[in-house]
Amino acid sequence: MPSDRAESVKVSSDLAIQTSNMTKIFNGLVAVDGIDLNIKKGELFALLGPNGAGKTTTINMLCCLLKPTGGTATVMGYDINRQPFKIKEIIGVSPQETVISEHLNCWENLALIGKIHSIKAGELKIRSQQLLETMGLGDRAKDQARKFSGGMKRRLNIMMALIHKPEVLFLDEPTLGLDPQARRAIWEYIVRLKRETTILLTTHYMDEADFLADRIGIMDKGKIVALGTSTELKISVLEKHTMIIYAWNLTQRVISEMRSKYDEVEVTNGTMIITDKRLDFKEIVDLLHSSGAVVRSAYIKEPTLDDVFLHITGKELRE
């Protein structure tokens, strides 16, 4: 590892990104408000928040497009203020807007970024081939990008961030404006990238963060308002869980027993809804079985990140 990686900031060797009170103010408007983030190497971290929360500004500071107004950060040990070109060599950025050269084909678009990163021609070809295959653009590789669908352009957009095998990958809203099928294809590819590279992803889609991220930072008005794994976030903010059971032959005795054990039990036409802080799925189903009830189906209604966001900020995520 090069010796000039920042020493002024306390760097833990297992951290890929570390920010310390990083702030950006545009003409008096606070876009990012003193955030502290520690993202581990190999981690897929999602910044989740509504438009205007400061997610893209955060990324832009980390990839040295914007200078922070205050505070600092390191990327793989390099200081964003003092060593921007060191950082630019080891990161890949897939911008929020699809930014590709429309009159260039896939090969040429990939070569543009690859050659700027000084990748040798032979390696570039192999790497491009691999990416084109995995991203499913192999048969359209020689077509100019302007002829592509939105989903294909998006994939090329991500491929351009990957061509030089970056140590840290920034994906700014990777599936913005795509149909569910195209989103799913990109998710699958991102999942495959996990562990190979550290990924910082921004999104305002709850399901995206939930599906992809190891950890999630919920961002609102320039601040990280909650941080943790999807499960941690849901547990931390939601006090009660709900289990819904469809069953035949629910006796009065078992209903009474349930009511004595759990906070709320509602029964209507063979549907039992139990709500409490702690619910043990197996225990409840076993109890029903032993009472002679026939359980047709049962599930615990999972809290969503929407619920988490609503709980923390008092507003819905989607405007």
């Binding site: 990839c63 497009l65 630019k88 950025v93 911008p95 930014v99 700027i116 000084s118």
Partner: peptide, 17 residues
């Protein structure tokens, strides 16, 4: 305007390039 400059500015290319 289309963000290509920003994209390229996240690469090691220098102003003189």
């Amino acid at each position: 305007e289309k963000g290509m400059l920003s994209r390229l500015l996240t690469t090691p290319a220098r102003p003189v390039d």
